[in-house]
């Protein structure tokens, strides 16, 4: 152990900086699994009574039929909710949200977008989020909160009728739930695309560095 300590003291602090602490990585990957199940089964549930003039192709839905999809949805919801609560509480308590996501300045958002479009965006330091990342991560956390609350409003429109009323009633809550899903899926497309374009970010969310 003494050797390790000695080594640590010799290594420059930058090299050992952890970008994503263990709790972020664990909750991230649990969330990936929960979200795949929630979204896939949610699409099958949507298909039983579509809100718009389209349904999701059977090949990308989960559950096979409505009852199966509901079983998946109401099983994965516990994983999603418990994992989400752990993530948000730790994010607040450790100060990670404050440190990583704030401040968000409109001018910096514009500058980041401009840099990205002209291929001048720096990925040197993954431990600091640029303004667009801050905006998107904060946005998807908020969408996550909205999708859980609107989901509860649809699931329990009698026991939680005050919450359902807050969303404008049962039918309106279904639309809110749908658009929160669309927002999150939109985020995922960008998120995954950028993770693939900057592979070391993928390494960071697996190994932490």
């Amino acid at each position: 152990m003494t050797t390790a300590t000695a080594e640590n003291s010799q290594t420059p602090p930058v090299a050992q900086a952890v970008i994503h602490p263990l709790w972020v990585r664990i909750t991230h990957w649990i969330n990936v699994l929960a979200m795949i199940v929630m979204i896939g089964s949610g699409w099958e549930i949507y298909n039983a009574s579509p809100l718009f003039a389209f349904v999701f192709p059977k090949s990308i839905t989960l559950g096979g039929w409505l009852a199966g999809a509901l079983l998946w949805h109401f099983a994965a919801m516990w994983v999603l909710a418990i994992n989400g609560i752990v993530y948000v509480v730790l994010g607040l308590v450790t100060g990670r949200f404050r440190r990583m996501l704030f401040p968000i300045r409109p001018r910096e958002v514009v500058a980041t977008v401009r840099d990205a479009l002209t291929f001048r965006l720096s990925h040197a330091d993954l431990s600091v989020y640029n303004a667009v990342q801050r905006l998107l991560y904060l946005g998807v956390i908020l969408a996550g909160i909205v999708i859980v609350l609107s989901g509860l409003a649809i699931w329990k429109p009698v026991q939680m009728q005050e919450l359902t009323a807050l969303f404008g009633g049962y039918d309106a809550a279904r639309y809110v739930h749908f658009f929160a899903m669309a927002t999150i899926v939109g985020f995922l497309v960008i998120h995954i695309l950028l993770a693939v374009l900057v592979p070391k970010s993928l390494r960071a969310i697996v190994t932490g560095r």
Binding site: I60, L62, W72
Partner: peptide, 14 residues
């Protein structure tokens, strides 16, 4: 109906 897990690409991902 009985096969809840049918034809789901997302399951492949899982």
């Amino acid at each position: 109906r009985r096969l809840f897990l049918r034809g789901a690409t997302s399951l492949g991902a899982l």
